[in-house]
Simulated assay, not measured.
Amino acid sequence: MNLTDKIYIAGHNGMVGSAILRTLKAKGYNNFLLKRSDEVDLRNQQAVNELFQKEKPAYIFLAAAKVGGIQANNTYRADFIYDNLIMEANVIHAAYVNQATKLLFLGSSCIYPKNAPQPLKEEYLLTGLLEPTNEPYAIAKIAGIKLCDAYRAQYGCNFISAMPTNLYGPNDNYDLSNSHVLPALLRKFHTATVNGDPGVTVWGSGAPLREFLHVDDMAEACIFLMNNFEEEGYVNVGTGHDLSIGDLALMIKKITGFSGNIVFDKSKPDGTMRKLMDVSKLSTLGWKYSIDLEDGIRSVYEGYKSASFV
């Protein structure tokens, strides 16, 4: 990408999209196409086609998606598969019709089979059954990968895909009813510290292992792939390291200054015992994460404390 090439970031207000925009600006890129969902509904094919015909973006980061936690994924199954399928299909097809130079589609680690071996290698895709609670979302994301590959095979489009591990960072979701584990724990420990509570309850045994990547590192990886990767299939993006939920809770306890006890509620589900990305493909390409987990959480916590909703 040249600094003056027109870059469309679909989903630029979300956690990943905003990180990509922030990182591109810091690198000197200066020609952006940015539209909120109330300006252009990506589920509307005519609106998407008109946008692309008018603006002719050269590079597209497809980070727009309907997302949510386990409860939302399981409750609104039709919305999650329809909205995500139609958005990615509209954008990918419009990119082909209007001869975009390159497109990067962003997926999710939930595309892997529920019982896939660990760590998760790219070749494990479609080798087993998905986790039932988020199957509609996962199928939509798998379809996005296959769309990119099909347009590459039939039309020669330079469309690529990346699958991130669990992300955290600025613009994360701290709603306890549908947030992911790291922001949920950060909010719980902060509230307990402010209120002087004697303990914080953590769901499950604390034994499951999870991998976390700062969203700014994810943005760096996306830009790296846009400039350096041109193959079918997709690339895992992560750190290649994980830790237990119990150790994560201890780290967040330390960062927030909480002095009480951690109580593990073993009546609550643990979920999958391990979800670790194999990042050897990305490492071979020449990219590695740079933000240490504890340093990253400290930075996020400082931003959380200063936010107006705290």
Score class of each variant (00 low, 15 high):
Met1Asn: 11
Asn2Tyr: 11
Asn2Leu: 09
Leu3Met: 07
Asp5Arg: 09
Asp5Pro: 15
Ile7Gln: 00
Tyr8Pro: 05
Gly11Thr: 03
Asn13His: 15
Gly14Gln: 01
Met15Gln: 04
Val16Tyr: 00
Gly17Val: 01
Gly17Ile: 01
Ser18Arg: 00
Leu21Glu: 02
Ala26Gly: 15
Ala26Asn: 09
Leu33Thr: 02
Ser37Asn: 14
Glu39Gln: 15
Glu39Asp: 06
Arg43Ser: 02
Ala47Lys: 00
Ala47Tyr: 02
Glu50Gln: 07
Lys54Met: 05
Lys54Ile: 14
Pro57Gly: 01
Ala58Met: 07
Tyr59Asn: 02
Phe61Val: 00
Phe61Gly: 00
Leu62His: 03
Lys66Cys: 02
Gln71Pro: 01
Asn74Trp: 02
Thr75Gln: 04
Phe80Asn: 04
Phe80Ala: 06
Leu85Gln: 09
Glu88Trp: 12
Asn90Tyr: 02
Ile92Val: 12
Tyr96Glu: 14
Asn98Ser: 05
Ala100Trp: 05
Leu106His: 04
Ser109Trp: 07
Cys110His: 10
Cys110Leu: 09
Pro113Val: 13
Pro113Glu: 13
Lys114Val: 11
Lys114Asp: 03
Asn115Leu: 13
Asn115Pro: 05
Gln118Tyr: 11
Pro119Trp: 06
Tyr124Ser: 01
Leu125Asp: 00
Leu125Val: 08
Leu126Arg: 11
Leu130Cys: 11
Leu130His: 09
Pro132Lys: 11
Pro132Thr: 07
Asn134Ala: 05
Asn134Glu: 10
Glu135Met: 08
Pro136Glu: 01
Ala140Tyr: 03
Ala143Ser: 10
Gly144Asp: 14
Ile145Asn: 09
Ala150Asp: 00
Arg152Ile: 13
Tyr155Cys: 15
Gly156Phe: 08
Phe159Gln: 00
Ser161Asn: 11
Ala162Lys: 07
Leu167Asn: 06
Gly169Val: 04
Asn173Gln: 14
Tyr174His: 10
His180Trp: 09
Arg187Val: 11
Arg187Tyr: 14
Phe189Asn: 04
His190Phe: 10
Ala192Pro: 08
Ala192Val: 05
Thr193Tyr: 15
Thr193Asp: 02
Val194Lys: 15
Gly196Arg: 09
Gly196Gln: 03
Val200Gly: 09
Thr201Arg: 12
Trp203Glu: 09
Ser205Ala: 15
Ser205Trp: 01
Arg210Ile: 15
Arg210Gly: 03
Glu211Gln: 06
His214Cys: 06
Ala219Cys: 00
Cys222Lys: 00
Met226Arg: 00
Met226Thr: 03
Asn228Ala: 09
Tyr234Thr: 14
Tyr234Asn: 10
Val235Ile: 15
Asn236Ser: 08
Leu243Thr: 12
Ser244Lys: 12
Ile245Met: 12
Asp247Leu: 07
Asp247Met: 12
Ala249Met: 07
Met251Trp: 13
Ile252Arg: 02
Lys253Phe: 01
Gly257Ile: 10
Phe258Ala: 07
Gly260Tyr: 01
Asn261Ile: 08
Val263Gly: 07
Lys266Trp: 04
Lys268Gly: 06
Lys268Cys: 08
Pro269Thr: 00
Gly271Asn: 00
Met273Trp: 12
Met277Ala: 11
Met277Arg: 08
Lys281His: 13
Ser283Pro: 02
Gly286His: 05
Ser290Phe: 03
Asp292Met: 08
Glu294Leu: 04
Gly303Leu: 02
Tyr304Ser: 06
Ser306Met: 08
Ala307Met: 13
Val310Gln: 05
